[in-house]
Amino acid sequence: MQWLKYILALMSLVGLWFVGLSLSAFIPLPASLLGLLVLLLGLMWLKRIPPALLKVSQFVLGHMLVLFVPATMGVLLYAEKLADNLLWLILSIVVSTVLSLGITARICQRLWQPTDQPPATPHDD
């Protein structure tokens, strides 16, 4: 019986995506985002997460990477167009990603410390 619930949870994710798709005709946001918001509202209304949905979403999100693979293979299509400046492009993406990661986390940590962890370590800054 348990796996039936898992299938039901999986189908409800697909169903909610279609709900998002039909909503995107009226609201100019991507279907997946609207589906997400509908599910979020539903969970807030339920006030709990159904155990099967929790299990299924953990599984799906844990292996979401595989769904990116086909799109990533598109890199081969643009290899020629980018070949001359590939090194610069890669360097720029790596540097900007690392810097923004560090800066964003740093700002967030500073803003959270007063409310979340009262005794901030003095030697940390």
């Binding site: 999986l10 994710l13 697909v14 909610l16 995506w17 998002g20 279907a31 997946s32 985002l33 589906g35 997400l36 918001l37 599910l39 979020l40 969970l43 997460i49 949905l53 929790l54 299924v56 979403s57 953990q58 799906v60 999100l61 979401m64 595989v66 769904l67 990116f68 693979v69 086909p70 799109a71």
Partner: peptide
Amino acid sequence: LTWLLGPATVALAVP
């Protein structure tokens, strides 16, 4: 597989 990214994105509502 690419299409399934949509329903997978919906699952982000849980966490």
